[in-house]
Amino acid sequence: MTERSYFAPRGGLPNPKTRAHDRSVFTNAYAVIPRGVMSDIVTSFLPGWIGCRAWILARPLSGFAETFAQYIVEMAPGGMSDTPEPDPQAQGALFVTRGRMHLVVDTDTHVLTPGSFAYLPPGTDWKILNIHDDKSNFVWIRKRYEPAPGYDAPDLVIAHDDDVPPTPMHGDADVWSTTRFIDPNDLRHDMHVNIVTFLPGGNIPFAETHVMEHGLYVLQGRGVYYLNEDWVEVEEGDFMWLRAFCPQACYASGSEPFRYLLYKDVNRHPSLTLP
Rank of each mutant, 00 (worst) to 15 (best):
P205A: 12
A118K: 05
V32R: 08
S81D: 14
L272W: 09
F7S: 10
P86V: 12
I204L: 14
R180S: 14
P184T: 10
A54V: 14
D40F: 05
T209R: 08
P147Q: 08
L261M: 09
A8C: 13
T167G: 00
A207L: 10
L57S: 03
A69P: 00
F206L: 08
I204W: 10
G79C: 13
W241K: 04
A159C: 07
L216V: 09
V164M: 12
T43D: 01
L94E: 02
I204Y: 09
M80T: 11
L219E: 03
D186V: 07
F258R: 05
Y217S: 02
P16Q: 04
P16Y: 06
G171Y: 06
L272P: 00
G78R: 12
D106L: 02
S5N: 10
V139I: 14
I72Q: 15
G51Q: 09
K135D: 15
K17G: 05
V37T: 12
H210S: 08
C52R: 08
G123L: 11
I128W: 07
V196P: 01
A207D: 09
S116N: 04
P114G: 07
D87N: 15
S255R: 10
M80C: 13
T113H: 06
N194M: 02
L94R: 08
E3Y: 03
V175L: 14
